[in-house]
Design a protein around this nucleic acid. Structure first.
Lengths: 215, 215, 215, 215
DNA sequence: CCGTAAGCGAGACGGTACGTCTTGTCTTGTG
DNA sequence: CACAAGACAAGACGTACCGTCTCGCTTACGG
C-alpha cells in the first residue's frame, strides 16, 4: 500500500523493484512493529528497534516505508485482514447482520466493536495510529479511507435497508445519522471521556434510533 | 498547575520552590511553545527549541514541567484562559446562552466551537494535545478534566434547564444526550472523517433534538 | 591568600569585607574540598559539591576564591601548615637536619618526602594541584612559590653549608645541583616513570653527591 | 591504538568494526583536537567542539575513543609519528647520535628536546597530556610507554655504549644515571620551576657526567 | 539599642557540555 | 540487486555544573 506510494516515480531515486522484495522480511517487520507498540508503546518504538527485533537491516525498512507511522499502518492493516480471515469464511469483506431488527443489529455490531477496542492486541496500535492521524492529516485521511470507511459503508447499507423497511425516517442524511451511533463511542474511546461497555452502546442505539424513527 | 503536581512529595528530588519562580520565564516558555507548535508542528517542536526561543535554560523547563506535552498543556490552558478574559467581562467562567430556545442556543454555541476549531492559533496546539491524550491516558484524563469538562458542564446545565422547561424528554441520561451534539463534531475534527461547518452543526442539533424531544 | 588577590581594587566589583568573613565556613570548605578530592578525584570534585558538603552557599565560595583550583590550593596550604604544626614545636618553618654528614641529611629528608608523597591524604590533592599547575602557568608559579620554594630554600641552605664544609665542590651552581636530588624523584612521582622508595632516594643521593664532591 | 583497546571483549557493548572505520574522519578529528588544544587550551577543548570542527558526529568520536584525553593522546602520537617521518629517512625509529663523545651527543639531543618543548605546536598538547597523566595513572603509564619510553631506550643504549667505551663508570644503574639528564629538564618544564635553555641542558650534562665518570 | 548593611545558606536562572539515543543516508560484503 | 550489518553526520534527549543573580536570615557595627 505504501509500496504503491513508493512505486510512484519518486524523482531522483529509482524505485526499488518490488518483485524481488523479501516476503519474510515484510512479515518479520510487521510482527516486530506490532509487538513493540504493544510492549513499549508507540513513542518508544523506534525504527532501529523494529529492525533489530525483525532481524532486518534498517535500510530494508527505509526502502519500503516512509515513516514509523507508515510501517505501523501497514502492519495494522495486515493484522486486521488476517484476523478477519480467521473469523469469517468470506475472504475480505465483513458482513453486517440483517435480522430485520435494525436496533438489534446495530447493538450486535457495536458490542463487537467495543470488544475489539478493548482487545489489547488492537488497542495499542489503533491508538497510536489514531493519534498520529489527529496530527498528520494526510495519514489521517489514509487511515479513514482504508480502515474506517469500509466499516462505515456497511453501516450505511444497513441503515438504507432499514430506511427502506420504514424503520428509519425518510429524507434523513444517513451519513449524519450514522455518526450518532459511531461518534460517541469513538470519542469516549479516543479521549477517555467516559467508560465504554455493551450497556453504553445499547443505550446509544436506543436513544439515537428514537430520533431517527419516523414520526 | 504543574506546580501543584510538583508540590507532591516527589521522592528523592526536592521540589523546587515555586515562590521564587520567574514569571517572565514562564510567560516566555508558554509563548515559545505555542508559537513553535503553530510554526513547525508538534513533533518538530523540541524542548531545546522552546528553551532557545524563550531565551531560557533547558533546566528551567525541566525544573517545572515533566515533558513537552506538559509544557504545551499548560501553555494552552493559559492561552485559553487569557483569550476568555479578553472575550468576556466575567473574569473566568464561560456562560452558556439561555434564550429559552434550546435549539438556537446549542446552535450558537456549536457554531462558536466550529470557529474555534478552525482558528489556526488554537488548532495546532489542540490537535497536538488531543493526539497526545489519545496515546497517553494520564495526560488525556488531565486534558479532559481541565479543558473539556468545564465546557461540558455548561452544556449539561443548559440541557437540564431545557428538560425542566419540557423541551427535552424526562428520564434521559443527559451525559449521553450531550454526546449527540458534541461527539460527531469531535470525531469529524479529530479524525478528518468529514468537513465541519455551521450547517453541519445546525443539522446535528436538529437531528439530535428530534430524538430527545418529548413524545 | 586568595583573599589578598581579591582585596585588590577589582574594578566594578566592590571587594568583600574580609573582617566579617565566616571562619567556620572557610574551615568547612577546606575540609569538604580535600575530602572530595580524596574520595572522588579532582575532576569530579565540583564547586557545587564542595558547597553542598560544606553546608555552604555557592556564592560563599565564589566570593572568596576564583576557581576550584584556587580553593584546593588554599585548602592544601592550610593542610600543610596544620600538619607541620602538629609535627614540630616550631610554629611554621621546617628545619633541615644538619648532622654534619650531608649524605645522611639528604637521605633523611628525601625519605620523609617519599613517605609524604605516598600518604593518601596528601597524594590526591598534591597530584591534582600539580596537574593543574602543568597546564595553568600562573597557578603553577603560585604553587611553586608557596609550596615548593620554601623547601627548596632549606635544601639550598644545607647545600651551602656542605659547600662551606668542603663536602661539595666550590663554584657549582647549587640550584642545579639541588635538582639532581629533587627532580628524579619528582619525575618518577609525577609521571609514574618508576617506583619511588627509600632505597631509590638513597641511591640518588649517593650517585649525585659523587658528581658534586670535590675532586 | 585505541582500536586495540576497543578490540578487547568490551562486555555488553559489541565493539565497532574497525575495518569499516572512516580514515577521513580520523584524520579530521586528530587535526581538530590538536588545533583546538593549541588555540583555546585543553580544558576548553570539548568533544562537541572537536566534532563540530572536524565536521563529524559526536558519536563517531565516542565510538572510537573513551575520553577527550584518549583522543588527544592518539592525535599526539600520530603527530609525533608524522613529524618523525618528515624529519628522518628511517621510517619509525629515532636514532641517537654516536660521535664517540658522550657529552657532545647528550648535549645535542637535549638541545633538540629543549627546542621541541618550546615549539608551540607540541607544547600545548604535551602539557595537556602530561597533566592528565599526573592525575590519571592509567593514562599516565600509557603515555610513558608510548611516548617517553622509546626515547629513554635510545638514551640507555647510548649510555651503555659510553660505559663500554670507559666514559661512564662500571656498575652504575644506568636507569638512574639517565634521570640526571632527563628529570631536571622535565621538572623545570612541567612545574615551571626554572627556565629551560641550551645553556641549562649543557650545564646539566657537564655536572651529571662528572658524577658518572670513572674515578 | 536599634537600624542598616554586610556575609551567609539556599537555590532559580541562562548557559554549555556531557554521554546516549535515534534518524535517515551511505557503504560493504553475502546470497 | 535485495539484503543484514552497521558506520556515519546530525541533532535532541535529560543531567550535571558553571558562574550570576536574587531571596530572607542572621550578625555586627556605627549613629
Amino acid at each position: 500500500m505504501s509500496a504503491q506510494r513508493s512505486a510512484q516515480p519518486a524523482p531522483g531515486k529509482s524505485a526499488p523493484d518490488s518483485t524481488r522484495r523479501s516476503e519474510k522480511s515484510r512479515r518479520a517487520i510487521y510482527d516486530a512493529a506490532l509487538a513493540l507498540v504493544v510492549e513499549v508503546g508507540y513513542p518508544k518504538t523506534t525504527i532501529e528497534g523494529i529492525a533489530a527485533r525483525a532481524g532486518v537491516g534498517k535500510q530494508t525498512i527505509y526502502r519500503w516505508w516512509s515513516s514509523k507511522a507508515d510501517v505501523l499502518m501497514e502492519a495494522f492493516l495486515d493484522l486486521a485482514e488476517r484476523s478477519q480471515q480467521e473469523a469469517s469464511a468470506e475472504p475480505v469483506s465483513y458482513t453486517f447482520p440483517d435480522t430485520g431488527d435494525i436496533a438489534a443489529d446495530l447493538k450486535t455490531v457495536l458490542r463487537a466493536t467495543v470488544d475489539e477496542l478493548r482487545d489489547p492486541r488492537f488497542e495499542a496500535p489503533s491508538r497510536a495510529l489514531a493519534a498520529e492521524g489527529v496530527v498528520n492529516e494526510q495519514l489521517g485521511r489514509e487511515l479513514v479511507a482504508k480502515l474506517l470507511q469500509p466499516s462505515l459503508d456497511l453501516y450505511m447499507d444497513r441503515l438504507r435497508a432499514a430506511q427502506a423497511a420504514g424503520q428509519v425516517r425518510e429524507g434523513l442524511d444517513l451519513r449524519i445519522a450514522l455518526e450518532f451511533f459511531i461518534s460517541p463511542l469513538a470519542q469516549r474511546w479516543l479521549q477517555h471521556t467516559g467508560p465504554i461497555s455493551h450497556e453504553y452502546t445499547d443505550t446509544l442505539v436506543d436513544y439515537a434510533l428514537h430520533g431517527l424513527a419516523p414520526r
